[in-house]
Design a protein around this nucleic acid. Structure first.
Lengths: 351, 351
DNA sequence: TGGAGCGGTTGGAGCGCTCCAACAATTGCA
DNA sequence: TGCAATTGTTGGAGCGCTCCAACCGCTCCA
């Protein structure tokens, strides 16, 4: 598999290496005759320029790396898509590195990009210690998406979590709810921020005393369990604000199994507005984050650093919005002053 | 951001470039004293070897590229995870290229990897013309996962679709179903194979006359629409074999909305056994493909080519299995000889 | 008629590394 | 005691490209 080089093409076309190089780079002042000769020779030989040699000689790579904490998270996938679109528009190659939720894998991917001399790296949802990020930022432009990192030289793109939680709570309060519980994401990435934002929102609406956080994690099973726990404790609220859509979906399942109707008996709000929430069958009210936009801004921040020489770090805080679907409505008539007393009925909907 | 080179490290440590190179590559016969001196100098300077220069000089990269047709497909993500694990075990770097379901983006990613002189490339679910794949295979080792490609020099890893469909149909037949419809994936990747496999399975069980393909695509909305269509036509079968889990989920929603219970009134089988199917709330019986294994085998095929010099192409056909959950059961009592006559009831489960 | 200017082309140096032959310093053994 | 073998270290060539100064042959115009 020894691939042809510039030299081979030059020889076959009867020109110098330099001329071939010019043609390959699409230079303008090359005679049409030679250009076609070179192109033909290149095609015959199946020649493709060696990017390693080119990068070395040019001292630039026009490549951006994106490190994804988890390939399975649709939220991250959207950010990557947004980043890809922006990279393409600006004429950069984009490479991905996937870390299966392992810090070591994240570090590996970051180092691989640094070694390849990627000009910038976007870290998406990574759990790398900020000191390491700051360290890397000394030799490559770095933007962090979907995580708070306050470091000089590191750009960040996040969405306003406090606002997101407030939108959810406000919506529910507007519908007449007071007992609004939060099933949290445990120690998942961003869970504590969201939990805090929920508490703050409750307080802002004078519902501090109704604040209730039920421990969970970012899975549907955790959502289901949390609801079962609430049912067992006889402390079901009239509305649940779940840490994300997956948790909300799990909660919904358990509620229906318990014979409760959504949203007639209990309202449900998720977070992230994933495809799951949009599913006709679930139709979850959910807080949307502008994911594509986040990826795009991360890349554009890098490009500002690279091409306009910006040095001062930038923080983008994007505005989430609430997408209202069918999982939220006014609380049941009798529940406005009291907590709903649950009569466990036989499951319906599934025989 | 001009990064330090070997030369800089050598000067600072008071040794030759060669010695630094040896240390960086972990060579054994270097005195302990110099090794620590070099390491210290490298650390002070924040030195990381330039992979471009190294790859160029070494004429190898120990890098594999993975081109994903779609970052959002959890099926592909699992294949990538399997590939990553195998690559790491064999000491290769793995880079991802994501194409948002665009052939052009797939081609771009493939070419980027070829230009970087990746030693092998795994194409996951790509829609690239086979001629192009064959062409690329002349200069880099290529394995294709989750798609049929019969080309010399190209390894393939697929799962046995005919068996998968047979498992689904067999399961339903075993439960007593005869009217088993298929909601297909339209012209999505692999949809026609699956459709054919369904027809073949129906025939194998002597149910050729009951064969019914309802057109759809790989979305939950299509699944929902297909069911609505069947309801409108008054031709609801007792069981539905959906092209994938998303379609099954959509179908389930429409069925429940129509007041039908799953699996009491209609049984449902999905495909891919995604996280969606496993969700407590849906609990879909589904055909599982060994996805991680597929990724692993793709990478191992490449490594056989690279390290053992295998030239003859290899085709891995993996065995799917059925994961039975709660969406399938025996057909309703009266339905065994006749088609179910649907009495449209008010939706339940959701008020 | 003799430059200046221009489009097109070329050789050579250099990018940061590896690899190899060669060498210096030590050790082992006849 | 002499020489081979061994261990540790080094300079230089070369990987495949880009970039730059220089050059060639023309045309154009003073």
């Amino acid at each position: 598999m020894t691939r042809p080089t510039l030299e081979d093409v030059a020889r076959r076309a009867g020109v110098s290496r330099s001329l071939v190089s010019l043609v390959m780079r699409g230079a303008s002042n090359v005679s049409e005759q030679r250009r076609t000769a070179v192109l033909a020779a290149a095609k015959d030989l199946g020649y493709r320029p060696n990017a390693n040699a080119r990068n070395l000689a040019q001292k630039r790579t026009r490549t951006l790396g994106v490190v994804l904490n988890d390939l399975h998270n649709p939220f991250f996938a959207d950010i990557a898509d947004g980043a890809a679109a922006a990279a393409a528009e600006h004429g950069y190659h984009m490479l991905l590195g996937a870390a299966s939720r392992s810090v070591d894998a994240e570090r590996d991917a970051l180092h691989t990009f640094m070694d390849l001399r990627a000009e910038g790296v976007v870290l998406v949802g990574t759990t790398l210690p900020s000191a390491e990020i700051a360290d890397a930022a000394r030799s490559v432009a770095i933007a962090v998406a979907s995580r708070q990192v306050r470091q000089p030289d590191v750009d960040t793109v996040i969405s306003d979590e406090r606002l997101g939680a407030r939108l959810a709570v406000e919506h529910l309060v507007g519908l007449g709810h007071r007992k609004i519980a939060h099933i949290d994401g445990g120690d998942g990435a961003g869970a504590s921020t969201r939990r805090g934002a929920y508490s703050a929102a409750m307080k802002a609406f004078g519902l501090e005393s109704e604040t209730k956080v039920v421990p969970g994690e970012f899975t549907d099973l955790a959502g289901a369990r949390a609801v079962e726990q609430m049912l067992a404790d006889g402390e079901l609220p009239t509305a649940i604000f779940a840490a994300n859509d997956l948790v909300a979906a799990g909660a919904l399942g358990s509620l229906e199994d318990a014979g409760l109707a959504i949203p007639a008996d209990v309202s449900l709000v998720g977070y992230d507005n994933t495809a799951l929430a949009a599913m006709h069958h679930l139709s979850l009210t959910s807080v949307h984050q502008p994911r594509l936009e986040m990826g795009r801004l991360a890349v554009e921040s890098l490009i500002e650093r690279l091409e306009e020489g910006r040095a001062r770090p930038v923080r983008h805080v994007l505005t989430p919005r609430l997408v209202v679907r069918e999982s939220s409505a006014a609380p049941p008539a009798g529940a406005r002053r009291n907590s709903l007393s649950v009569s466990r009925a036989a499951p319906i909907g599934r025989a």
